[in-house]
């Protein structure tokens, strides 16, 4: 490739990164803007929006604060945390067990399982969301955190399955035979040989499941109950009613948190044996 076309490509790459990050950076800038009348016009630096969402004292008047109840916001955060933790742990267990089963055994229905596991990932969220809604309501379940956790597990298990399977595929199967040969039973072999080998995949899968669960809006939208609003639902509700500056601060806090979790996951995945 010639030097000039290389430079053109580099300029393009820079523009690409700008496209990815500029919208997010915009939120970051506005989250510190002290202009209470027009949030788009920069006036000065303030942390008041961050303070207001935690219910701390600010210079802002009552009418300027959109999150009237810090409790509602904190409840949404709590719901999201509970759902993401439970759903990611459950789906990690289920997805890992499935990956082990399909990677280490040959049986007639293997292809059926493999196909079935792809479906929840590629199906439009809204279809899965309403199917679960009809099912939960029809079966008489009360919509709430439990239904959200179960609903999330349906598609998160597939993500964990894909990541752990990739890790298992790269593992020498003779290691497990060597362990059995040296006197270790199936459980000991799993705990002392297989699990340490696939651990980066399991942790990476769990983190990915956690992030996707934390971020899920569409499926949760249909299967959440009135008193189980999660953070994305809370933000969606705020946005439907109009844009207020506190949203910037909430958005940035959420972004920082997701980026830290994602960076940890990506780092773990890049670490190879």
């Amino acid at each position: 490739m010639s030097r000039r076309s290389g430079r053109v490509l580099d300029a393009y790459g820079a523009a690409f990164l700008l496209l990815l990050y500029a919208p997010i950076a915009l939120i970051l800038v506005y989250s510190f803007n002290s202009n209470v009348v027009n949030m788009m016009a920069w006036e000065g630096f303030t942390l008041d929006w961050y303070r207001s969402i935690f219910g701390l004292t600010t210079r802002l008047s009552e009418s300027q604060i959109y999150v009237h109840s810090t409790e509602a916001l904190l409840a949404a955060v709590r719901h999201s945390a509970i759902v993401a933790l439970c759903a990611s742990m459950l789906s990690t267990a289920i997805g890992t067990a499935t990956a082990l089963g399909l990677a280490r055994h040959d049986f007639r229905l293997k292809r059926v399982y493999q196909g079935l596991l792809v479906l929840p990932m590629v199906m439009p969220d809204i279809v899965l969301g309403i199917a679960l809604l009809i099912f939960f309501v029809g079966a008489g379940f009360k919509l709430g955190l439990t239904t959200i956790v179960v609903g999330h597990c349906v598609f998160l298990s597939s993500y964990v399955f894909v990541i752990v399977s990739a890790r298992l595929a790269g593992m020498n199967t003779e290691l497990e035979e060597a362990s059995a040969d040296l006197g270790a039973g199936p459980w000991t072999t799993f705990r002392r040989v297989t699990l340490p080998q696939i651990m980066p995949g399991v942790v990476g899968g769990a983190l990915l499941a956690f992030i996707i669960s934390l971020d899920d809006l569409v499926i949760t939208y249909f299967i959440a109950g009135v008193d189980s609003t999660t953070l994305p639902l809370f933000i969606y509700g705020m946005l439907r009613r109009g844009i207020k500056p506190e949203i910037n601060a909430i958005a940035i806090l959420l972004l920082v948190f997701s980026f830290v979790v994602a960076a940890t996951g990506l780092w773990l995945r890049s670490r190879r044996q």
Binding site: E177, A178, G185
Partner: peptide
Amino acid sequence: VPAYRRPFNTVFQSYALFPH
């Protein structure tokens, strides 16, 4: 009798040493 209860040991072709 499963492999882990047999009083035999194997040297594998790939050695199968546990990398961790």
